[in-house]
Design a protein around this nucleic acid. Sequence first.
DNA 1: TGACTTCGGAAACGATCGTTTCCTATAGTG
DNA 2: CACTATAGGAAACGATCGTTTCCGAAGTCA
Lengths: 207, 207
Amino acid sequence: MTGSTPSPDKECRTRGRPREFDVDEALDKAIDVFRERGYHGTSISDLSAAMELTAGSIYKAFKDKHAVFSAALERHITLRKAAMQAAIQTEKSGRDKVCKVLTTYATQCHGIEGRLGCLVVGSAIELAIFDEGIARQVNDSLMRNETMLAGLIKDGQADGSIAADIDGPVTARSMLCVLQGMRVLGKTGRAHEELLAVVDVAMKLLG
Amino acid sequence: MTGSTPSPDKECRTRGRPREFDVDEALDKAIDVFRERGYHGTSISDLSAAMELTAGSIYKAFKDKHAVFSAALERHITLRKAAMQAAIQTEKSGRDKVCKVLTTYATQCHGIEGRLGCLVVGSAIELAIFDEGIARQVNDSLMRNETMLAGLIKDGQADGSIAADIDGPVTARSMLCVLQGMRVLGKTGRAHEELLAVVDVAMKLLG
DNA sequence: TGACTTCGGAAACGATCGTTTCCTATAGTG
DNA sequence: CACTATAGGAAACGATCGTTTCCGAAGTCA
């Protein structure tokens, strides 16, 4: 969506020499570089090395560095959302689904993966102030997570696994804070058990 | 401590022309620039303009850009800690003190101040992976907050304001996650009431 | 096949980066 | 008063930044 191709996107879909690499595969590599170095800390040289493309080829596929980042962020969000939905669909009750969300985050936030961090959080911290577009992508993602949690809590209250008297939307927002907080803590390295213990405590919020 | 003066720090305390500016005042201005732009996003020109010093003068007082950042981070941590201790000392019970900590964060994280963000979180996200020294400063600060919260909870359990059967250390860590999570959410802008509602919910963790 | 279009890649672009150098000004020390 | 040491500040440094240009290669379309 966001400038992944500078061309008009209309007519002549396959004219000229076809691209030799897969854009999504290249973006997957870009994601990891941006995750560990941030936007300003990543140079085109870094991207070129990681994506195994020359700078010229990158600029053929993307308008500029910002467009690469925006596309990488979008893909990161999409992949994470899909993985999360796959993870929770095997759980039965609303409570179990919420618990699965929390433990999945706890797992993502520990060790090496935790130090790499989350592109959404990184974007929020580094770019949200000055970059309106990125801020919207970040906020949309956070709000979607918040809404998802609120939905799961509602499901839990409907199926009886979660107390009916708790405030779903606010509890969802509080849990979102716990999740994003784990991302911050994971950046300096936390043991898996430390974060799983946090999950246990956070589950008390469901009554 | 961290290279605020390149000189040997011994003997001849005031030889040569004295410095015309106050280092801490200059650091206060640097803090705000780093908070909004991050480390890599801040140039020496930016610092020069904000600190009202020429690049040369900055390099007279600090070894390099990294030393400016490290000193700014250290001062930021010190100031925040002092402000927090001042805020909670007027509260009586352990529970009230914990609540005060949470509401203070909620206030800091909303509106314009929230968008500026926290230098500790920013450092964690942007630098902790590759910069061992900064990672230690960040981790020390986070651990200190975690320990402080655990101490307040223990106080509360002693004075009867907090249930005796909760796990203090783990609850403290969970609350730290809530706090850092509010910092992330505050980066894209949240209303004060939204965050205060999160505090209300988080207080339920005390039983 | 020939015209056309896009790609991959190397090289070059001006701009800005973080840092140093150089010179003068201003203090303390003997 | 000389001597020494540091501050302030302008200018210059090489390096690297993000981006563009150029050209031969590799496809599609008529």
